[in-house]
Amino acid sequence: MQHTSTVDRPVVPPAPDSRTFARAIGDVRDAWRQRELWGHLGWQDIKQRYRRSVIGPLWITISMGTTALALGLLYSTLLGQELPTFLPYVTVGFIVWNFILGVVTEGTEVFIANEGLIKHLPAPMTVHVLRMVWRQVLFFAHNLVVYIVVLAVFFPALTSEYQMEGDVVTHPGISWSVLLAIPAFLLLVVNAVWVAVVFGIISTRFRDIPPVIHSFINLIFFMTPIVWHVGVLNKFDGDTSWKILIAEFNPLYHFLEIVRAPLLGQVQDWHHWVVVGAFTVVGWALALVALRNYRARVSYWV
């Protein structure tokens, strides 16, 4: 009878589980550390878009300026608003909206558009999101030139107390409170990242999501106080409290208001910051859950 000796075999540790919040947070952290990569790619995107153009990215500013001017002239007449205060209102609202629009529409396709890089470049998934958001920040910076021009033209009207048609409060005018627009925009950028992460992952799995969002985005534009002012609702007869809720239940209104109000020297209720802060916490929680569960599957879905 033969006896076989027992040979000690090395214990192979189990494969680490990639579906952990530590891996999800690490993906965001590693993407931030590679800011030179997505920062350079964002610049290249703009250069590539306006390659062989005579005036280059200035087309962004010209397009924004003409659109804001046309909408401001039209709706100031339709709504009976004073042009020196209403045109800046429309301009700033449209600049912020253009940033939100770019984040949402391009965010739905952020992973689909980067299929080649995702499959061949070993980089965190969030790198592609930060590249897209950085590109939108650069567009926003170009559009701010329009705001500076409008501010220079209507400076006397915006630096003294004024009321817009339908307002029940008097706005103090532009002062040092304009600096609040800086943390407000940074908060907007932080929210843009989680929006692109969540919508990008969902859209990669379900390709019907991008056209659905593109179809409804124009409706959302007209439902958001951009070319119309919330105070206009006070001009209607009867109880206007429920009409104000049309704006209050629209989350984009609060994101707009925290940036727009300080840039125009308007009275700002702090509940806008509370609402945006709540969306920031909930949104990033959803983004981390999405990264935890589906980050590794994106490369197979694209």
Rank of each mutant, 00 (worst) to 15 (best):
Q2F: 07
H3Y: 09
D8S: 06
R9L: 14
D17E: 12
D17N: 15
S18D: 04
T20M: 12
R23T: 07
D30K: 11
R35L: 11
E36I: 05
E36H: 12
G39L: 10
D45E: 14
Q48C: 02
Y50D: 04
S53W: 05
V54N: 07
T61H: 08
I62N: 10
A68V: 04
A70M: 13
L87K: 01
Y89L: 04
G93H: 00
L101G: 05
G102C: 08
V103R: 10
V104K: 03
T105I: 15
V110R: 06
H120L: 06
A123Y: 02
P124C: 01
R131G: 03
V137T: 08
F139C: 06
H142N: 07
N143A: 10
Y147C: 04
A152D: 00
T159M: 12
Y162V: 03
E165A: 11
D167A: 14
G173H: 08
V190F: 15
S203I: 03
R205F: 14
H214R: 15
F216A: 11
N218Y: 13
V227C: 02
W228P: 04
G231T: 04
K235N: 11
V259K: 07
L264T: 02
G265E: 07
Q268A: 09
Q268W: 06
V274T: 09
V276S: 08
F279L: 15
F279V: 07
V281I: 15
G283C: 07
Y294I: 00
V298L: 13
S299K: 14
V302R: 01
